[in-house]
Amino acid sequence: MNEILENTVIAESVNRYVIAAPKIAQRRKAGQFVIVRVDEHGERIPLTIADADPARGTITLVVQAVGKSTAQMATLKPGDSLRDVVGPLGAPTHIERRGTAVVIGGGIGIAPAHPIAQALKAAGNTVISILGARTQALLIMEEEMRRASDEVIVCTDDGTCGLQGFVTHALADLIAQRGKPDFVFAVGPVPMMKYVSLLTKEHGIPTMVSLNPIMVDGTGMCGGCRVTVGSEMKFACVDGPDFDGHLVDFDELIKRQAFYKEQEQLAYQQMQERCQAESLAQATPS
């Protein structure tokens, strides 16, 4: 059991959790993740660690409510506990001094981008972060990213904040105006990582991406998280989650991510109906 110390809504359907996990807080490195189970019926949800405070013994997770489990998690209050938190899992991000590094976070992917930006900066890189969101209300962690970066470029699909357009546009502009950065790290929706990687491949910029495929155990046992990287089969949970963006078969990954969509929607819908019924019952005077 791991106690939730804080649960804050930081954007529409996006919560920031501070969770007591002293040992993980000490051990985790940038790029690693945990697997969380909300209750005893819960599925195992892989979530990248967004931050950690070893002194306080906490880790920070930023989670978007997209299905039953994550919606259920959003209802938890400080003082409640998660049934299980296991980690740190996965290999840490390879951090070295390369010069100028562009860190791209798309949507909820800004959360896992945060420790990467921190680590790259700590290693002596000039860090330019590009943050992308559909709209201003969905933009998260801008302040934290500003602290972790030398420069931040914000872009939204609808232009409500920063530049209008996708992160790929911002990256293309950056390359056109200031030349090629030495390294790009991208994390976010799979199509975003795909198009970032296509662009950087054209320019020959080394690019790493952080993948979050469907997985069960997170220790290399089930193989559910397998991805094709340079025509080799890799398990994202132990071989990754970071891979060379120029070698990942993103189209395959997009299909694999969608496999349980129908079932997940069914479970989510049933939960919402049950919640509505319960609140109706409570609202009706007896």
């Binding site: 599925e43 069960v216 559910g224 079932q263």
Partner: peptide, 21 residues
Amino acid sequence: NEYLTRCNLMRAYEFPYSDTP
């Protein structure tokens, strides 16, 4: 491993009562 783990450990045969599909 994955098929059996989903079913045995995670009780996918009780989905959606259990959350693992």
